[in-house]
């Protein structure tokens, strides 16, 4: 038996919004310690890894490890029927082929129960190596979203260069070019830790997709090392994270 109750559906909506652009279907791996998800997009360019600890939930019970195959678009449709301040309970019996979602209004005078068909997904899990990132940058999530949006109007490719002076985002296309540089601020909303400078090139449309997670967190952490995938991490309150990995463009 798996049962988890969140006091606010808004958080679940934000999490699903952050996943559904990259993944149409995915498996939630539920265990006693919490809920995990790991999946690549269809083209194997990016990977999403989500972790939510059991103490995020008002009530959490998971008697044995369970994999719930979900169609995220269907889940989005169900979540649209709920109000953000509803409490939500998700429930699935062992070996069940359905997920139950119950929404309870804040005033507790309305309950709505939904059943969502579970999918049998053959999902491959990848081992993500421990990486000592040469550059780690924290910045406001809204700033990162704005930069990704602004650069993608210029070019399909975005170059991210990180040095001790700051982080620079560049795009160069037919209509012209753009460079946006952020330096460390004294008020601490932008911080830059650099062991060695790194410059890598990425597909802007994936970066844009990652910024769907912006409503989850005020801050985003960007980690880079030479010739390895970029890591963009959004914390989920104090209870977990969504991490996006993006393969760099490589010189032919």
């Amino acid at each position: 038996m798996f049962e988890a109750r969140l006091s606010s559906t808004a958080l679940l909506k934000k999490i699903v919004d952050a996943l559904k652009e990259i993944l149409h279907q995915s498996t939630l791996d539920c265990s006693d310690s919490g809920i995990q998800l790991q999946a690549m997009d269809n083209s194997h360019v990016s990977l999403v890894s989500m972790s939510l600890r059991s103490d995020c939930f008002e009530k959490y019970r998971c008697d044995r490890n369970l994999s719930l195959g979900l169609d995220l678009r269907s889940l989005t449709k169900v979540l649209k029927c709920a109000s953000g301040d509803d409490a939500v309970t998700i429930k699935s019996a062992d070996k069940a082929d359905k997920l139950q979602l119950s929404f309870e209004s804040a005033s507790m005078d309305r309950t709505a129960d939904y059943e969502l068909r579970l999918l049998n997904l053959d999902q491959e899990h990848l081992a993500i190596p421990e990486t000592d990132y040469a550059c780690v940058v924290h910045m406001p999530a809204t700033e990162f979203a704005r930069i990704c949006r602004d650069l993608s109007t210029f070019s399909e490719s975005v170059v991210i260069a990180c040095t001790k002076d700051g982080i620079k985002f560049s795009a160069n296309g037919e209509m012209g070019s753009v460079n946006i540089k952020l330096s460390e601020t004294s008020k601490g909303d932008v911080s830059v830790q650099v062991e060695e400078p790194v410059t890598l090139s990425f597909a802007g449309r994936y970066l844009n997709t990652f910024t769907r997670a912006t409503p989850l967190s005020e801050k985003v952490k960007i980690s880079m090392a030479p010739e390895v995938p970029l890591l963009v991490e959004y914390p989920i309150e104090d209870y977990g994270y969504i991490r996006y990995y993006l393969a760099p463009k490589v010189d032919e």
Partner: peptide, 14 residues
Amino acid sequence: VTSQGNLKDFFKPK
């Protein structure tokens, strides 16, 4: 000339 890298070149199946 650059081409898009593949994550499977970096992360191996468990």
